[in-house]
Nucleic acid binder design. Structure first.
Length: 509
RNA sequence: GGUGCUAUCGUCUAGCGGUCUAGGACGCUGGCCUCUCACGCCGGAAACCAGGGUUCGAGUCCCUGUAGCACUACCA
């Protein structure tokens, strides 16, 4: 059993965009699979036809592909255990439902949803279980003839698990250790619905995990309470010896307030909760995504990996490969992790700085073009180099470099009052002459221009600040930006002189 | 209400009985760098939920309480 090939699955239900917590679950499954040279399966759990959302499946695949979480098997990835979409596995499940019915571990129930609701109103904390099923309409209380007759005439029914009370069920969890639950508190869960001939999650999940030879079930903590039922089902089927090992991951909590992170928190608190932007096909509503917000996929992965897991040392910035090597279920936290968006931004800043200027410049070129400007690649690379240190997202490069393209027409009023003094026009005029007289070679070389200008200031008894600050305001329009000569060399001499002239004119007007 | 899980700086966490006057990271903050804004670098403030045990010794083990979270559907 210990020799079993590692096979894990990520099994979302296509009811909408993939939530960031789901992404983390997928990531942990992937890291675990890859570390053990195992298989990573994508299974689509679409047994609730009423909640199906078109586009959700494609979204899930696109999102995980963007993040570099790869499947080796499953919907759209091939494999020998298909089909991998549960709605396409109806016939398979029926057989196992019958097996449970025959062995007496399940029974047929005719109670309608309306009747159940009434019952719940009638009896506080009503639960369909060993104590109450004797008063309900099912194959345990009806004669065989009546059951057959009802089925024959087309009454809709469900198949329920028959849970015997009074038994301690132990779920061995790789993260939490042994969790013991008494079967008395479990209810007779619906396993199958005749209305659509589809199983519910519980049955489909067990049958598929068994048939697909899944070795480890790594899923969210919300499944822990139903894990005993799952253990029972493996037992009912006689599959206990190949039952997967369970690992229930702690939940991602809201950054503030209480409760788990939900789909609605994102735009309310000003950060995305989805990997990709999502356009709701029904309402047309748009939810923001990490990709569109400008995140690097590596940063999202790194950030998510550390939310509920740590490598045991002080490593913080890790590539996917490093994460694969270091990951371990036993180091997963048991308690829920509050989602810390600020740290996510820090990760992105870190990853952005590690990107080459050339790579960023290629993307930046598109932005520049879209804004209606042009620049050769050499200049774009220089701009990126000058500006990226102050960017958290690649998308911020434009805002920080726009001054290269847009000649200032106004000057920040506060800076103007502070930096432009009475003597400034004369100083700038002198600086203009100095620049004008510089050879093109010297002007274009930041490393040489700096000491030259510095010397010029000294020779003329100017303080560096009295020259540089007004000059910056003249060239940029505000007191921000890269080092002076990373501005002038890219701007070029003509544009530099023009901007100085404009500023002098503005000051004298 | 019931059942289960969890509980260290504001946040993510390290800690698996002595090495803890509790370590790292984000954030916050002081300083340095500096022509600006940033980046970067150096420093600082900041936590063991409470009460009982066990033990020579408890953040670490046990119990109780408290709090948070999850589940409690013919949803997953």
């Amino acid at each position: 059993m210990a020799e079993r090939r590692v096979r894990v699955r990520f099994a979302p239900s296509p009811t909408g965009p993939l939530h960031i917590g789901g992404v983390r679950t997928a990531l942990y499954n992937y890291l675990f699979a890859k570390q053990n040279n195992g298989d990573m399966i994508l299974r689509i759990e679409d047994t609730d036809s009423s909640r199906f959302v078109p586009g959700a499946e494609a979204y899930i695949k696109e999102a995980l592909e963007w993040l570099g979480i790869k499947f080796s098997e499953g919907v759209g990835y091939g494999g020998n255990y298909g089909p991998y979409r549960q709605s396409e596995r109806r016939d398979i499940y029926r057989k196992y439902v019958d097996q449970l019915l025959e062995s007496g571990h399940a029974y047929i129930a005719f109670d309608t949803p309306a009747q159940l609701e009434e019952k719940r109103k009638e009896i506080a904390n009503f639960q369909y279980d060993a104590q109450t099923r004797g008063q309900m309409t099912n194959s345990l209380t009806l004669s065989k003839e009546e059951v057959d007759e009802r089925i024959a005439r087309g009454d809709v029914y469900v198949v329920r698990a028959k849970i015997e009370p009074g038994e301690e069920i132990v779920v061995h969890d790789l993260i939490r250790g042994d969790v013991t639950i008494n079967s008395t508190i479990l209810d007779d869960k619906v396993l199958y619905k005749s209305a659509d001939n589809l199983p519910t999650y519980h049955l489909a999940n067990i049958v598929d995990d068994h048939l697909m030879e899944v070795s480890h079930v790594i899923r969210g903590e919300e499944w822990l309470p139903s894990a005993p039922l799952h253990v029972l089902l493996y037992r009912f089927f006689g599959w206990e010896d190949t039952m997967p090992q369970f690992a229930h991951l702690s939940l991602l909590l809201k950054p503030e307030g209480s409760g788990k992170l939900s789909k609605r928190d994102g735009d309310r608190l000003g950060f995305p909760v989805f990997p990709l932007e999502w356009h709701d096909p029904a309402t047309g509503a748009i939810s923001s995504g990490y990709r569109e917000a400008g995140y690097e996929p590596e940063a999202v992965v790194n950030f998510l990996a550390l939310l509920g897991w740590n490598p045991g040392d002080d490593s913080e910035v890790m590539t996917m490969d490093e994460l694969c090597q270091k990951f371990s279920l036993s180091r997963c936290a048991k308690s829920g992790a509050r989602f810390d968006y600020e740290k996510g931004k820090w990760f992105n800043h870190t990853y952005l700085q590690e990107k080459s200027n050339e790579e960023l410049a290629v993307k930046f070129a598109e932005v520049v073009k879209a804004k209606g400007y042009e620049a050769d690649m050499k200049k774009l690379v220089a701009m990126v180099d000058a500006v990226k240190g102050r960017c958290t997202f690649a998308t911020e490069i434009w805002a920080n470099a726009a001054f290269y393209f847009e000649t200032p027409t106004t000057y920040n009023e506060k800076d103007r009052q502070k930096r432009w003094k009475e003597t400034t026009p004369d100083i700038l005029a002198a600086a203009r002459e100095m620049f004008a007289n510089m050879s093109d070679e010297l002007f274009g070389n930041a490393a040489e221009a700096e000491p030259f200008v510095s010397q010029w200031c000294a020779d003329n008894n100017y303080k560096m600040g009295d020259v540089m600050n007004p000059l910056r305001l003249a060239l940029v329009g505000e007191m921000k930006g890269p080092h002076m000569f990373q501005i002038t060399t890219i701007l070029g001499k003509a544009e530099t002189l023009l901007r100085i002239d404009n500023a002098i004119a503005a000051m004298r007007s």
